[in-house]
Simulated assay, not measured.
Amino acid sequence: MESCSRVAFLGAKKVGKTCLITQLLKKSVPTKYSPTIETMFRYDIQTAEDSFTKLEILDTAGNFEFPNMLKKAVRSCHAFVLVFDLSNPKQTFEEIEMLRQLIIEEKGTEYAPIIVIGNKKDLVYGQDSVDNNILDAIVSIDWGCPYITTSAICKVNISDVYTVVCKELKIKIKHSSDVNGNSGNTTKHGVKHRRLSFSAFKRRMLVL
């Protein structure tokens, strides 16, 4: 029986969660901004043991617009990628601080790895800035979480996100493969995604 792991991408609006996911899975980014309610991406990845494991990526709404849905998503996921905007760190990093606390409260003693991503690196000059060093220390030392700086638009460190997520979930990926199936047969059924329509969203909110 194949195993399945679910990862949620969480963060404020317009920090680039959807762009990171689509760059990771499809090597492209959306041409225009469209607010996300909830989208699930599913794909199969080949492991080092030549078997397949299912990985689901949940793209969520920004901010705490739908708190019940957010809590339900947190309870259903095995790992979390918290995304903030390097060009607007004060507001967007505060958001992931609150999200981290929510994850701790909802998951309790259950192990749930958290990866922190500072996106939009292309808009910040000098990666080794004082602000970034402080944020790196908070995440890496105080929180004990992996920290990656990325640019979804410029395709910077995107593969690192995939590698770290798999490592934190203890998925031993085939060395020559990546999430896009570049080894030739990494993806067994291809990438599938399901976007939550507004009508489906309203029906779900009635039962939360």
Rank of each mutant, 00 (worst) to 15 (best):
C4M: 07
C4D: 00
R6T: 04
V7A: 02
V7N: 00
L10S: 00
G11R: 08
A12M: 04
V15R: 02
V15Q: 03
V15K: 05
L20W: 08
T22K: 11
Q23E: 09
L24I: 02
L24D: 01
L25G: 01
L25Q: 03
K26F: 10
K27N: 14
S28Q: 13
S28T: 13
V29G: 02
T31S: 06
K32W: 04
K32N: 01
Y33S: 00
S34M: 02
P35F: 08
P35G: 01
F41T: 01
F41H: 08
R42I: 05
Y43C: 14
Y43N: 08
D44A: 04
I45A: 02
Q46L: 14
T47S: 05
A48K: 15
A48R: 14
E49P: 01
E49H: 11
D50A: 12
S51E: 13
T60W: 05
G62H: 04
G62N: 03
G62S: 06
N63D: 15
A73D: 10
V74I: 15
C77P: 09
A79Q: 02
F80I: 00
V81T: 02
V83A: 09
V83P: 12
V83T: 09
D85F: 12
L86I: 06
S87F: 13
P89I: 00
Q91P: 00
Q91S: 15
Q91R: 14
T92R: 13
T92Q: 12
F93H: 11
E95Y: 09
I96Q: 06
I96G: 06
E97V: 05
E97N: 11
R100A: 13
Q101E: 15
Q101W: 12
L102P: 06
L102T: 05
I104R: 15
E105L: 10
E105A: 11
E106F: 08
K107G: 08
K107W: 06
K107F: 08
T109G: 01
T109I: 04
E110V: 08
E110K: 11
Y111N: 00
P113D: 11
I114E: 03
N119L: 05
K121L: 15
L123I: 08
V124Q: 13
D128L: 09
N132L: 11
D136A: 12
D136P: 00
D136K: 13
D136T: 11
D136Y: 12
A137P: 00
V139M: 07
S140R: 15
D142Q: 14
D142I: 00
G144K: 02
G144E: 08
P146S: 04
I148V: 06
I148L: 15
S151A: 13
S151F: 13
I153W: 09
K155S: 15
V156L: 14
N157W: 12
I158H: 06
S159C: 06
S159F: 02
V161R: 09
T163R: 14
V165W: 05
K167E: 11
K167H: 10
E168H: 00
K170Y: 07
I171E: 11
K174N: 14
K174C: 13
H175F: 10
S176C: 08
S176Y: 07
V179F: 07
N180W: 09
N180S: 12
G181N: 12
N182Y: 11
S183I: 03
G184E: 08
N185T: 06
T186R: 03
T186M: 07
K188M: 10
K192W: 10
R194W: 06
R194L: 05
R195G: 00
R195E: 07
F201G: 15
R203A: 13
R203D: 13
